[in-house]
Design a protein around this nucleic acid. Sequence first.
DNA 1: ATTCCACGTTGTACTATACAACTACTTCAA
DNA 2: TTGAAGTAGTTGTATAGTACAACGTGGAAT
Lengths: 144, 144
Amino acid sequence: MARRDESVETIQQEMTAFARRARATAARMHPELSLVSYTLLAHLDDQKGCRATDLAAHYLLDKSTVSRQISALEKLGFVERRVDPDDHRVQVLHPTAKGAQMLANVTASRRQAFHERLADWDEEDLDRFATYLLRYNAAQERHG
Amino acid sequence: MARRDESVETIQQEMTAFARRARATAARMHPELSLVSYTLLAHLDDQKGCRATDLAAHYLLDKSTVSRQISALEKLGFVERRVDPDDHRVQVLHPTAKGAQMLANVTASRRQAFHERLADWDEEDLDRFATYLLRYNAAQERHG
DNA sequence: ATTCCACGTTGTACTATACAACTACTTCAA
DNA sequence: TTGAAGTAGTTGTATAGTACAACGTGGAAT
C-alpha cells in the first residue's frame, strides 16, 4: 500500500506542477493566442463549427466567459458567427480562413515543442504515457 | 513514425485539457485556498520556510505576484514573516500553526480525490504513470 | 396567448498576473 | 570609508480570465 500511496502522491504533485506552469508557458510561446482562445478555436475547427453554449458545456466555462472570448476572437478576425436559420437565438461559430491559418501555425509550433520535449522517449513509453493520460482525464471527467 | 506522432499528439491534447481544467477544479474543491496559494504554502511547509524570492524563482512567478500572494496568506493568518537577523532585506516565510492545519486539510482532501480518481488503476500502472510525469516535467523544465 | 425555457450579451467584481518604479538594505571596490 | 551597484521586497498600474446576476430576444408548450 505504501508504494501505491507514493505513486498517487507523485502523480498529484506533478499534475499540479504542470497545471501551474501551463498557462504561462503557453502565453510566452504564443502571445497572439492564449491557451483558452487556442482551445476554443481548435474546438471550432475540429467540430466544423458549434454554438457558444456547446463550448461552455464542453470546457466547463460560464457562457459569459465564452461570449467574451468569442468576441475577442471575432475582433481579431479569427472567428465568424452565422445565425442559425432554424433558430434565431443560435449563432453557429466557425473559424475564418485567417483563424484557421493562425490555428495551424500555433498547432504546428506547439506540436514541435512537444516533439522536442519527448524526443528521447521510445515509442512504447510514449504510447503508454498517452494511454495513461487519456485514462486519467476520462476518470476526472466522470468524478469531477 | 506515424504511431509516434499520434502518441505525441494525444499527450499534447490531454495535457492541455488537464491544464485548462485544473484551476477551476481546484477552486471548486477549495474555495478557501487557491491553487497558487496552496502551492506556495505547501512549498513553505516542505522547505521549513524560505524567502519570497525563492518562491518566485521556483514557480516562475514575478516577485510582485509572490509578494501579493504572501500578503493574502498573511492576512488569512496562514503565513508569518521572520526578518532574517543576518540580512535585514530578507523575510523568511513560515506557515503558521493555522496555516499548517489548513494545508493538511486541503492536502488530505486533494489526496483523497486523486485516490478516488485512480482507484481502479493497478500498482504497476500508477508507478509507470508517476515516472512518466516526473520525466515529462523534468524535460519541460530543461527545454522551457 | 401566456408562460416558461434557451441563447447570448452586458454590468460588475474578483483573482492572478506582469512590468516598472520605488525604498531599504548589503556588498564590493576604489 | 564612502559611493556604485546589486538584491529583497512593496506598491502603482494595467491586463486577462473568470463567475454571477440581470437582462433582451426568440422559440415551445400548455
